[in-house]
Every structure is written in C-alpha cells, then in structure tokens.
Design a protein around this nucleic acid. Structure first.
Lengths: 191, 191
DNA sequence: CCTACCGATCGGTAGG
DNA sequence: CCTACCGATCGGTAGG
C-alpha cells in the first residue's frame, strides 16, 4: 500500500465528512487533521482558514444541486417529466454526495453573512427552477389548477431534503424504490 | 420597570433560543449568560453543566410532540380526522415553541449516546403514532390501499418538520392557511 | 508537513 | 450571583 501526499481536495472532503457528522463548530482543525493523518496546524499549508473549508463544502453543495437542476430543465419533455428529472437529479446528488449535502443543508447558516447570502441566493435560484416547472405544469393542466407553485415547490423540496435524515443506502429501500415512493407521494399524496 | 431574579427556566429558555440560532457548539456559556444578564460562571448556580441545558431543551421538545400526538390519538373520529388532528397539533407545537423545536430537530444529535438514544426512542414513538393512524386509514379505505404507512409517515413528517426552516409567522401565509396547504398537499399531492 | 508556540476562549470551580 | 481563577482546547503563525 502506497501512502500518497495529502491534497487540498482530501482536506476539503474530510472537512465535509466531519462537518456533516459533528457540525462546523463541533469540529476542530485538529479533528480534520487527524482524519487525513496530519496535525491541525499542517492543514494551513493547504487552506487559509477553517471557514474557508466550510465555504468550499457549502459552495460545492450549491453547485451540485444547481447543475443537476439545469440539466433537468434542459432535458425537455412535458412539465411532468421535467419534474421527475428534477427529483431524480436531486436524489442522486443527495445519495452520491451525502456529506457535502448534509453540510450544505445544516451548516450553511454558520457562515458569515456575506457567504451565507450567496448560499441563500443559490437556494432561491434552485427552488425557482422547481417553481417554474410546477407553474408550467399547472398551465399545461398536468397538475391541479388551484396549485400554488411557490408553496408546492417548498413541500416537494421538504420531502427531498429530508431524505438525508432518514434514508439508509443499505436499508430495504433501494434508490429507484426511493424515487418511486417520493414520486408517488408528491404526485398523489395519501389518496 | 422591576428587574426580577433569573430563574432556571429563564436560563433554559435562553439556551434554547441560542442553540436554535447558533447551534449547541456555536453557543458558549458566556453567550447564554449575557442573554439573561449574568456572567457565564453564574449559570452554574442554576444548572450543573452545559449539556444539561441541551438535554432539558431537547426533552421538552420530545415531550411537547408526544403529548400533542397522544391528545390527537385520543380525540376520536375516523382516521382522516385523527390524522388532521396530528397535523394541526404538530404545527401548533412548531409555531408555539419554535426555539425548542429547532433545537430538538437540529441539535439532538450533539447529545452523548445515552441521551441521544432516549430522543431517538421518543421520535420513533411519535412517528409510530402517525404510522398507526395511516395504517388504520388504509384499512378503513380512507387512503390508497397500496400506501406503505411506514414510508408515508416519513413523508408527512418531512413536510411538517421542515416548516421550521421556511415558515415566517409574519408572512403572507397565516397558521390556518399553512395547515390547509399542508393538508391539501399531504392528501392530494400535486394532482 | 512538523516543531514549537501564540493569545483567546472554552466549560467549569472555590469561596464568599 | 460575582470575583478570581483553573487546565484544556481553540484557530492560527513563524520558521524550518
């Protein structure tokens, strides 16, 4: 087994894992150092500050979601199938980048106001893609005509963003089944 | 204006507010002291440790939700109306005890394993009340007959628990409208 | 990337 | 409830 040099990306990945688990303020630089086999002080050869690490992880989360949504929007099809692409893409991001997503969803509020504002803007932009597809769906008659796209997008994203809190990849529910369950609930509710 | 003695309840309430805002590890004893007009060290006249404060706030959250659910379960009516009571009760707890709820939902994982296990058990117990009502609803034909009560309870609670993250009491959506929107979405989804 | 260290802040205590 | 303080740990730096 060869031991490779620690890269900046290794440090950011370890930070994401630890921020997701113990929170930004619950993680020390020495914790992150230990995770990559370095002293806490040695991390400063790769980064300038602890907050830099949070900024980097959170920005990656924002980027992953936005790129996924832009791909889904461009995918074409009617509004129902574009919504399905949005949901599939969202779940893929959550399951393929769980640590980044958990840090993005739960720790972004620990950022200083300037960086936090950028994240809020990215989130709004992401939500607006859902809202637009839902609005188009109402116009096309694909969804109830009394649907409020603003409220509905929040409800759909509530279901999607909470997956991080309960879904276990090794549980009885596979990824496709997860998407199917969400699609059914979002489409029909309990009825 | 009379200045009253600080009580233990004042300290716990201030802790809940600060834990909700800045997280457990992002809040220092000196922060909490400042919020009640005391020094950090003076708080130890009221409590034994910082973690005691988290335990107390989180336990209160668990208690509020469980008591609400037990009342709803006892309320009678068919399964549809019992589910509605569960939802109304949940939203009342969230909106009337926002700081406690946010700490309960987001900071309980910072507890030591023993206390955390108790919270997980309380949460399971709360979720099982939703699951039971949904299962009864399927049996009564009030909901789709292919509904999985386990998955459905998670989806409903995802919507309910995320209210803390987006709802503003002074916004355009009143409490009754919020409940109506959730009820409609949970009942019918987008269709 | 480590050694050696910095000032600041942390949770908490003794004594009044 | 404050004064005075404790050892531990924090994020971070200088120098190699």
């Amino acid at each position: 087994m060869v031991t490779t040099r620690t890269t900046r990306a290794d440090v950011v990945a370890a930070a994401g894992r630890m921020f997701a688990d113990k929170g930004y303020h619950g993680t020390s630089m020495r914790d992150i150092g230990r995770a990559v086999g370095l002293l806490g002080s040695s991390l400063y050869a790769h980064i300038d500050s602890k907050e830099d690490l949070l900024v980097e992880v959170v920005d990656e989360g924002a980027r992953l979601f936005l790129e996924s949504a832009r791909r889904a929007r461009e995918a074409g099809g009617d509004s129902r199938s574009r919504l399905r692409s949005l949901i599939v893409g969202h779940i893929d991001v959550v399951l393929d980048h769980l640590d980044v997503v958990r840090t993005y969803l739960n720790e972004a509020r620990m950022l200083d106001p300037t960086h936090r504002a950028r994240v809020v803007a990215a989130r709004d932009s992401y939500e607006s893609i859902f809202r637009d597809v839902l609005g188009q769906g109402v116009a096309e008659g694909a969804f109830r005509d009394d649907l409020d796209p603003k409220v509905a997008s929040i409800m759909v994203l509530s279901v999607l963003n909470t997956v991080e809190r309960w879904y276990h990849p090794d549980g009885y529910l596979g990824r496709d089944e997860l998407v199917a369950e969400i699609w059914r609930f979002v489409g029909d509710g309990l009825s």
